[in-house]
Each structure stands twice: as C-alpha cells, then as structure tokens.
C-alpha cells in the first residue's frame, strides 16, 4: 500500500480563455511522501493545487484521490473525501471573525458529533502540535504575526487528521529562521501523523530540506523526480533553477 499513488492525475488540461496552463499533465503522488511543486511564475502551480482540491474545474483529464475520481464526483461524495485532506493557503486564510481556537474548531463542529469539551481539548492539542503557545488560541488572526497565522492555518488544516496535506507556499513571507522552523514542523508532523504532503513552493531551502521528490512544472507538463536526479536534467529552466546562485546555496546547506 505504501508505494501506490494516493493522488493520480491523468491528462489534465487547464485553460483560462485562450491561455493554456496545463496540457495533458500526468502526476502521481505517492502515499507518505513530501512532494514539492516548483515552476516559474505563471506556470500554474497554485492552479494545479486548486484543481486537485476541487476549487477549480479542469477542462479535461481525471484526478483520482484515494483511488476515486474527484472530477466525476457528486457534491456529497466530495464533501466526504474533503475531510480526508487539509489545505493551508498562503496567508493561512483564517476566518477573521473567529479566534484561532474557534478557527481550529470549525471542521470539528461541521463534520463530527463530538461533545464541545472534547472539541476544545482536541483543538488545543492541534494548536500545540503546530508549535503555537497556549495563549494563542484566544487571539484573533489580526493579532498574530504572519508566521503564527500560517501555523494557525496549519492547525486548522490538520484538525480532522487528514491523510493528505496541501500547502500553498508555506514559507513565503517568513524570515529564514521562521521558514526553517516551519519546514521542520511540517517534516515532524508528516512523520508523526503519517501524512502525505503536496507542497507548492518557491523556497529552494524547503525543497532541499524536506521534499522527497520534486515536481517541476514546465511547458504545461510536469517532470517529477528526486532533487539529485533533476539536477542532471538538461533543460534550460531546470538548470537555471537548481544551478543558479540560490540553488547552489540551498544545496550547499544541505
């Protein structure tokens, strides 16, 4: 079971007006791996993530998550499968009228029949799991720093113990120390909770530090391999990306 594809994308096509973003794109994400998705601006990294989680309907192709085709799914079925993944948006996307603890409690209240005290306990554990101090639970998103908002968003994404975690640029806007700590946090959670992580990122350090494999979006398709193998690929963008000054620095720090 461990090496099968938990997400299987076949022949995906995304198009906005005349602009084709993805064409005949195939991608497999294996259970239990951390997959980093990279690509230049406008190559559709976030669109790919949004398409897999169902926020964007593809023009063509199938997307199977847990072996079920989500493009052909009814809303009720999708609701069920959505509980098995969590999504962290760029700036946390916390509900601004709720406190952090209430934000984390939302999925519990919506999708479980647990008693309120149990929900509070579990929410407090999630808040601690992502490394927020205990008093953060009572604060509103506007009172938190960017890094803390991301952690809170992660706590909400993890609320129902999802099997897959989707991260959209988790370290963007964080200082290098905060970014490294966040990388480590994701790695730790991935190991202790047995998560599969699908991570869109620009951060070469993150890629080097925590990704098992890397998917490069190029020419409307995707090339997936380990970092070491991708370094050998002879494609101008990939070469510039991994062998540019930042790429070398990230690899040197490995």
């Amino acid at each position: 079971m461990d090496d099968t594809a938990i997400i299987q994308v076949r022949g995906l096509r995304n198009q906005f007006g005349d602009q084709i973003i993805h064409d005949n794109l195939d991608l497999d994400v294996r259970r239990g791996e951390v997959l980093g998705v990279v690509g230049g601006s406008g190559t559709g990294k976030s669109v790919l993530l949004r398409t897999i989680v169902g926020l964007n309907r593809p023009r063509a192709g199938t997307i199977k998550v847990f072996g079920e085709d989500i493009t052909a799914m009814s809303d009720v079925e999708r609701l069920h499968i959505q509980q098995r993944w969590g999504v962290l948006f760029q700036d946390g996307a916390l509900f601004s009228s709720l406190t952090v603890a209430q934000n984390v409690e939302v999925p519990f209240k919506e999708h479980t029949v647990l008693r309120h005290e149990v929900i509070e306990e579990l929410a407090a554990i999630k808040v601690d799991l992502v490394g927020l101090p205990p008093d953060a639970g009572g604060k509103f998103p506007s009172e938190l720093s960017g890094g803390m908002r991301k952690r809170a968003g992660l706590a909400r994404a993890l609320a129902l113990d999802p099997e897959i975690l989707f991260l959209d640029e988790p370290t963007a806007g964080l200082d290098p120390i905060g970014a490294a700590a966040f990388d480590q946090l994701i790695r730790n959670l991935q190991q202790s909770l047995g998560l599969t992580v699908f991570m869109v990122t620009h951060d070469l350090d993150s890629l080097a530090a925590i990704c098992d494999r890397i998917a490069v979006l190029i020419d409307k398709r995707v090339i997936v391999d380990t970092m070491a193998n991708l370094m050998k690929v002879d494609h101008p963008w990939i070469r510039d990306y991994f062998h540019g000054p930042r790429g070398r620095a990230a690899l040197a720090g490995r």
Partner: peptide
C-alpha cells in the same frame, strides 16, 4: 513505533497548561 511517536507528541501537548480566557 508509528503510534508511539504520535502518543508521545500528544502527551507532550496535553501536559502543557491550558489558557482559559
């Protein structure tokens, strides 16, 4: 082993004082 890591992490989280407004 897979469960031990989780149990340990949750025990750690549980042991922290709760902030009650």
């Amino acid at each position: 082993p897979a469960h031990a890591a989780l149990l340990e992490r949750v025990a750690e989280a549980e042991a922290k004082p709760r902030f009650l407004p």
